[in-house]
Design a protein around this nucleic acid. Structure first.
Lengths: 234, 234
DNA sequence: CTTATTAATATGTAGTACATATTCAATGCC
DNA sequence: GGCATTGAATATGTACTACATATTAATAAG
């Protein structure tokens, strides 16, 4: 049973490459392959699917991009584990995205940082708290924070980035890094609209304090408060 | 200035298709195109990049997959707005992903549902509350819930799906739908490990009640409590 | 038995040819 | 003149061939 001949329904005006991509995905999902398993060679796939090798390669190019397969010169192709964020890393850019998508991303960040609390409390380590304190202390000592939004932003990114890293969820952490340009863009737009990015009542020390001695619920509340300036954008 | 000749650094053993993809991405980002703008034709790109049309098409296949460009037979290619989740929709499948990635996704769901509270409070409508009540009432009246995990799961999905929809964040909502198979798989594994998916102390009516008359902070707390059975997996 | 050479293999790249869909212009008819 | 039809032009979509490249396997030489 090879599933390469699966009927993918009456999609309208789909190119062969798209159809083949779908069939390959069905094929991969249905056969429960393991990482490292060998795939048929391009020519075999082309014959089985009744298309040219060219079309097969255009479809495989997509799978390769997602990290689902890897190919070597004479070894052929093997299954690999896809990268969850392979697509996002390429398109997470203010110059490529529209207003709605950026708003969604902006909101997503707020959701993540407030919802992340339990992960942090489960996985926090004393060294982590120490590092957060270091960042907050450097921030407090840096006079440039008073005048420069860029400097403020630098510490903000460093502090919150550390929180994501502490979550122990590498997908989450990677997502945050990708999200930064979009978020910064949104904040910049915010600034031009005279919606001053006023500092919330809760600062980084308050967050650390809660993380160290408080509860997840309290931390969420403080984080929500800390992010209040951004929540006005909803 | 075309940026197609951008130096993409000394990446080792990259195929031409990958290199061209990168160059095209740089090209698109740097030129601040608008949706609908025309792109050079494939042959022109091939010449400018010094590669065959074949290679260009393999790269373009990826961009098409992400929804960044659309091409029509004689019109050529135009810029379109990429789909944030085009990659994820393809790979979000338990049979393709490994343990770590699935754990990340599992956690992500918990983070999202707890962190989502403020979006819900900003955007909730009376009809939404009504619909949530309908779901919860149907669930309470359905005796099959006592015996069948599948039936319980059905209402669970429906209720939480409605919450995502209420968030007003379509990316978030779409993500939830894609996340379901993975989450269900994790729960199924959970079940075999005898970690009974005991019901939390907070049920759907409690969540509705909070959403209707309470605060976001309270809702987060209840949602966290509602999800407690799953939080044991952290 | 080990090493060097050679052959075989599957992907990567180039190039040509043609199919297909769509636009645009020219033609011819009323 | 206005309008429909026809036909040419164009860019993508698909097929096919040829060869380059890297890697493995087999073979020959010492």
């Amino acid at each position: 049973m090879n599933f390469l001949t699966a009927n993918i329904g009456p999609k309208k005006h789909q190119s062969l490459a798209e159809q083949v991509e779908q069939k390959l995905l069905i094929y991969l999902k249905a056969n429960n392959f393991n990482i490292g398993d060998q795939l048929p060679k391009e020519m075999e796939l082309a014959e089985q699917l009744g298309v040219s090798r060219n079309v097969v390669r255009e479809a495989l190019s997509r799978l390769r991009m997602m990290g689902m397969v890897k190919s070597k010169k004479r070894k052929g192709m093997v299954i690999t584990e896809p990268d969850l964020l392979s697509g996002l890393t390429r398109i997470m850019d203010p110059s490529l995205l529209g207003k709605d998508n950026m708003q969604d991303i902006f909101e997503l960040r707020l959701v993540l940082e407030v919802g992340m609390a339990d992960l942090l409390f489960v996985r926090k380590k004393v060294e982590d708290i120490q590092e957060l304190n270091d960042i907050a202390n450097r921030e407090a000592a840096d006079e440039a924070c008073q005048t420069s939004q860029a400097v403020r932003s630098k510490y903000e990114v460093e502090f919150h980035g550390k929180l994501y890293a502490m979550s122990g969820n590498s997908t989450l952490s990677r997502f945050q890094k990708m999200l930064l340009p979009v978020f910064n863009y949104m904040v910049a737009v915010e600034a031009t609209l005279d919606k001053a990015p006023a500092k919330g009542k809760i600062n980084h020390f308050d967050l650390i304090d809660s993380l160290e001695k408080g509860t997840a619920a309290q931390f969420r509340k403080r984080m929500r408060e800390h992010l209040t300036p951004h929540y006005t954008r909803l």
